[in-house]
């Protein structure tokens, strides 16, 4: 499994103490490096729970996850924070940008978390990415002054800046119209190809899923279908 970037082993998640909800009932998947994947499923199927666990935001009740060959259950809080910062990029349905900062400042935050100073090279890379998403002219605007589609593009650039191994996107277009949905998917695809970053996209939109290389369907906490597109 050398070319795998994510491996999950008998992953289970139970929420609650008195009333227990078995969100994941034993998930074994591996995601290959540089691929573009979709996790689909109905609301409450456990797809977002799986994504949060891959992103080291949540911990499994049973089983474990390997990111780039390293087990996340063996890591302490600081190591997990470092993993999220360096190897993982997140794109959420609601962009989750910081309203106190401008577009360019938001983009640079993941880099600044691990580097006290922003190098000229990183700044240049941020500008290139902003140019690629057609937002170079808006970079100094406060994030609240941008439209929903523009905010989501800023969030994509933010996720890309540290050149992570994986980008986890939870319903990244759930809040956008069809035109912006297409723009966002095309951008993600482009960056997947250009930088070889692995994308795992959670969506309930089968049309969107059709555009990916692999579709994993989660149903009632289990993998119901795992379909890979042949080249």
């Amino acid at each position: 499994m050398v070319d795998s970037v994510v491996n999950t082993f008998a992953l289970e998640k139970i929420y609650g103490t008195s009333i227990k909800t078995h969100a994941l009932k034993g998930i074994d998947i591996n995601i290959k490096k540089g691929t573009f994947n979709a996790i689909i499923g109905q609301s409450g199927s456990g797809k977002s729970t799986l994504l949060n666990m891959i992103g080291a935001l949540d911990k499994p009740t049973k089983g474990y996850i390997e990111i780039d060959g390293e087990r996340t259950d063996k890591m302490n809080a600081k190591q997990l924070a470092e993993l999220r910062n360096k190897k993982i990029g997140f794109i959420f349905q609601f962009h989750y940008l910081l309203p106190e900062f401008s577009a360019i400042e938001n983009i640079l935050i993941p880099h600044r978390i691990s580097n006290p100073k922003v190098s000229g090279e990183t700044h240049q890379f941020a500008l290139e990415l902003l140019d690629a998403v057609n937002l170079k002219n808006e970079m100094n605007k406060n994030i609240t002054k941008l439209s929903g589609g523009q905010q989501q593009r800023v969030a994509i650039v933010r996720a890309l800046l540290n050149k992570p191994s994986i980008i986890l996107a939870d319903e990244p277009t759930g809040n956008l119209d069809s035109e912006n949905t297409e723009i966002i998917y095309k951008l993600m695809r482009r960056f997947n190809k250009k930088f070889g970053i692995t994308f795992i996209i959670v969506t309930h939109d089968r049309n969107v899923a059709q555009m990916t290389d692999r579709i994993i369907e989660i149903k009632d906490g289990l993998v119901n279908m795992d379909m890979e597109k042949t080249a």
Binding site: A77, A81, N85, Y96, P110, I113, S114
Partner: peptide, 16 residues
């Protein structure tokens, strides 16, 4: 609350 969650998802550690 939300901003702290976002920063943590981006990898800011507890001490920061």
């Amino acid at each position: 609350y939300k901003q702290v969650g976002i920063l943590k998802a981006m990898g800011i550690d507890n001490s920061k």
